[in-house]
Design a protein around this nucleic acid. Structure first.
Lengths: 160, 160
DNA sequence: ACAAAAATAAGAATAATATTCAGATAAAGA
DNA sequence: TCTTTATCTGAATATTATTCTTATTTTTGT
């Protein structure tokens, strides 16, 4: 329950579009853009948070500024029983692991990892992944360059 | 230039940590937490934006709320000459494509795609990817369940 | 080590925004 | 039609953002 009874109207979509592009846009600006009172916007935004339509607000930080230059994807085969996800939760707790996906096929999981450099990746695989019970094998894909990396969703157009 | 001369101190790290967790935290709150004047925080945040340490602020929206229930990763082989990325930029323009990575090995690119459902994915592959010149082959991995999905970076600890 | 220059912070004043709330309006249900 | 619920506006107040001056610290160059 909860997730099911979500009904969003065009005003909500417009708010979401604005917030998705700049989460620090203030109520007053949104209100002006939509031709409404700030108090109405505030109420809607709060409701969107309550309904868990907006999950959180985060600042996107430049990985290079923090010397995190290497991005990798790692496929992980485990002895996890299908449906169980013991290893997945362990993986999720590793700070360098940004994403953990349970994938179809026999690969098990796909994780996304950000490390300082190649040495950092090796270190992580040896000292962290290597010590997790239930990991059978890994296959690593190194990212040479990222052309696009966003979380933005396609939001329905209000003019439709 | 620009990216190279970035030097961040512990106060910056603390600001980044706060902002990464909640991009809507206001200056006054950050100032209180760090025991500084709001004006000083404001100046630092602006500088972090200018230096492109903070790239943007975005609201994370629940994909389920917008009926975007299927997440997929697609490996794409292309006829792109190594170093060139013609296809990559074309892929990056597709709204459903959240990420485009140039990867090592002969696979070419790895993209992350979010669609309504399986039908939406098929549609995208046929009508959008299928019409891009230079794509030789694709290999798709479907995500059954996402255990973790964040962009948060590991920020150096101020107490070190 | 010293002086000059640059960067950073505090604090006060003002501008702008957030938030609350009462009343008006509209939509949905009985 | 009457009632209930949801949403909006507009005004009042609380809080925050922003600017600017002064003080302090840090850096740079000699």
């Amino acid at each position: 329950m909860g997730k099911l009874e979500i009904s969003l109207d065009n005003i909500d979509y417009q708010i979401l579009r604005i917030m998705q592009n700049n989460a620090r846009t203030n109520n007053a600006d949104i209100a002006r853009e939509l031709g409404m009172a700030p108090s109405a916007i505030l109420e809607r935004v709060k409701k969107l948070e309550q309904k868990e339509v907006i999950l959180q607000y985060n600042a996107k930080i430049n990985p290079l500024a923090l010397d995190q230059n290497l991005l990798s994807f790692i496929f992980i085969k485990t002895s996890d029983i299908i449906g169980e996800q013991g290893v997945a939760y362990t993986l999720a707790e590793i700070p360098e692991v940004q994403e953990v996906h349970d994938i179809a096929g026999d690969d098990g999981y796909l994780i996304k990892v950000r490390t300082n450099d190649a040495a950092g990746l090796v270190d992580l695989m040896r000292n962290t992944l290597g010590k997790i019970e239930g990991i059978i094998s890994t296959r690593t894909t190194i990212v040479l360059e990222t052309v696009k990396e966003e979380q933005k969703l396609v939001i329905p157009n209000p003019n439709a």
